[in-house]
Simulated scan of single mutants.
Amino acid sequence: MEGRGLRAGFTADAPPLLHMSEPLRRTAFNRLFAVVYFSAILALLYRHVQNLFLHPTTSFLSFSITLFLFISDLVLAFMWASAQAFRMSPIRRKEFPQNLKQIIKDEDFVGLDVFICTADPYKEPPMNVVNTALSLMAYDYPTEKISIYVSDDGGSVLTLFAFMEAAKFARYWLPFCRQHNIMERSPHVYFESNSHRPSIPQFEKIKMMYEDMKMKVEHVIDKGEVIEEYISDDQQHQAFNKWTKSFSRMDHPTVIQVILDKSKDTDISGQLMPNLIYVSREKSKTSPHHFKAGALNVL
């Protein structure tokens, strides 16, 4: 019974386990093999020593060949010995993340900051980056502890528009993932998978919302600008107004847009959402910007 309790992550008088380890059965075989192999290496090296010092040859060529073989075998023996440490006591680890919330409260979880880098909406399609962000926002983790920073080194209004649309979709996607315990948190992966069936409640509704968001983003990318009919509120107007005629990829001021604020923005179920912040650092033609490395330094 005690063994079963350990395997399930519980014991009779201890709190739930977060992880455990057990030795593998091949430990004894590994050690026996190492002893035999080490004995063979010693015999080989002893043979080299005999040929070099106890029974030296008169030929310089033969001596040189034997010496080089001795050195090469020493190097190979060292490489083999240095790789044996993890074979002496191999173990299998098992984690129990489902027990984490039984040990600590949500407010005690550490904050999680995630940086997503992008640079060009045509080389790095915004929908790919958006799916990455949505999967991170839907982590099985207290949402108010997650902050996602999108570093756009290209300073593209198209990328900002894509993430604003993603924030609207996330208000429905995050509760959907929690309610149905969705494992594939990326919408693209989830809807493309053949293992999911429309029998899940709200499946078709969420899928249509995703396809609508995808259509808008791809249409904007094709047009090369944000269409006025897609701008739905004052927040978007104020954000997009920062892209003036003098705004260019290589010369523009800093743009920081808080798309979602975990202190006030909630999803349709009333639960707080993660921070989602768009950042495009200042660039000037007169100063080196060091590409994405410089963008990460700003963050």
Score class of each variant (00 low, 15 high):
L100M: 13
A81D: 08
H188I: 15
G155C: 05
V130Q: 05
S195C: 13
Q98F: 08
P121W: 01
L76Q: 12
N131S: 04
I182Y: 01
P198G: 10
S151A: 13
D140A: 10
S186D: 02
A162K: 09
V130C: 09
L112P: 04
T143K: 14
D108L: 04
M127P: 02
Q98L: 04
R87T: 14
R178Q: 09
F191G: 03
N181A: 09
I91F: 12
T118Q: 03
P125R: 12
S193Y: 06
A77S: 13
D108G: 08
M88I: 12
M88R: 15
Y149F: 01
P90S: 05
N99S: 11
A133H: 04
G154D: 01
F161D: 05
D106I: 02
L136F: 13
T132H: 13
F96L: 01
V114R: 08
T118E: 03
Y172Q: 11
L112G: 02
D152W: 08
F109I: 06
M183L: 11
P121C: 04
M137P: 07
C117R: 07
Y141L: 05
Y190H: 12
F163G: 06
A119H: 09
D113L: 04
Q179A: 14
K105W: 12
V130L: 07
F161E: 06
F191M: 00
S193G: 09
M164P: 02
Q98P: 09
S195H: 14
H188N: 14
E144N: 08
E95T: 14
E192G: 14
P126A: 15
N194G: 14
P126E: 07
N131E: 00
R92F: 10
S82C: 11
V110G: 14
M183Y: 15
K94A: 04
C117H: 06
Y139D: 14
F78A: 11
F109E: 03
E107I: 03
D108N: 11
Y139S: 01
R171G: 09
T132P: 02
A162C: 08
Q84K: 05
F169T: 00
A166N: 00
F115L: 12
I200S: 03
L174E: 10
S151G: 08
K94H: 07
L160A: 05
F109L: 07
A119D: 10
L160Y: 05
I91M: 07
E192P: 07
S199D: 06
I104M: 13
A167R: 03
A138K: 00
H188D: 11
